[in-house]
Nucleic acid binder design. Structure first.
Lengths: 105, 105
DNA sequence: TAATTAGTCAAGTCGTGACTTCACTATTGT
DNA sequence: ACAATAGTGAAGTCACGACTTGACTAATTA
């Protein structure tokens, strides 16, 4: 079910990948620029970027010999919405429950 | 870094686990009640519940011989906040950029 | 008390995912 | 042209995670 969210959540479950997102939130960066502070190979970064690209979080463009990655504007909103929906559903239920229990006053 | 979010995102990356959360959003349920529609063993469900419990999404209580699981009120908010923060950071940057580019009019 | 029900424990299987290395292909600066 | 730079591709390693089975315990119910 919803392989979309599957890949998205699973992608963000990796700390290196979230670190990449964090870095890109401050602005676009090249592959080797990302590899530096993260203590992994450029190959690893390239693989991570591919994953993040496939789930719509990151956009990538290669000009000349350097590939520049940047965040996709609404790439994270599915996550946000999913969490928000569950939370509001739960809150509604708990409110109803509180109302019912409150009747006894 | 932040093993908290690590486990949280990774937990939600599993479709069965998200299905459990979905089910629990409608109200508490026992282990076997959860196992039924999901087509997996009760053992598997128990393991999933343990994972969800460890990352603060689910609460569990065993009375008699039946263990009942329910959602923790704010268990998903770290996810929501993380996504929202990145989005707003990105939007701010893009707005600034648009302003600068717009100067030329 | 016997049989059913609800869940737990300990292993074991099987796939997948994060990383690396090494060789290789563009590009760019001297 | 030559050397350095930036990244890609194909293997291969290694650990971990999802799930199952089978034996077992504890609480119900007939």
């Amino acid at each position: 079910m919803t392989p979309d969210l599957d890949r998205l959540f699973q992608a963000l479950g990796d700390p290196t990948r979230r670190a990449i997102v964090d870095r890109l939130a401050e602005g676009p960066a090249s592959v080797s620029r990302l590899a530096g502070p993260l203590g992994v190979t450029v190959t690893a970064i390239a693989q991570h970027l591919q994953v993040l690209e496939q789930c719509g979080v990151v956009r990538t463009e290669k000009v000349g010999r350097v590939r520049t990655a940047s965040l996709v504007p609404n790439g994270l909103t599915p996550v946000e919405r999913w969490a928000r929906d569950r939370r509001s559903m739960l809150e509604k239920r708990l409110d109803r429950l509180a109302d019912i229990l409150g009747e006894g006053d």
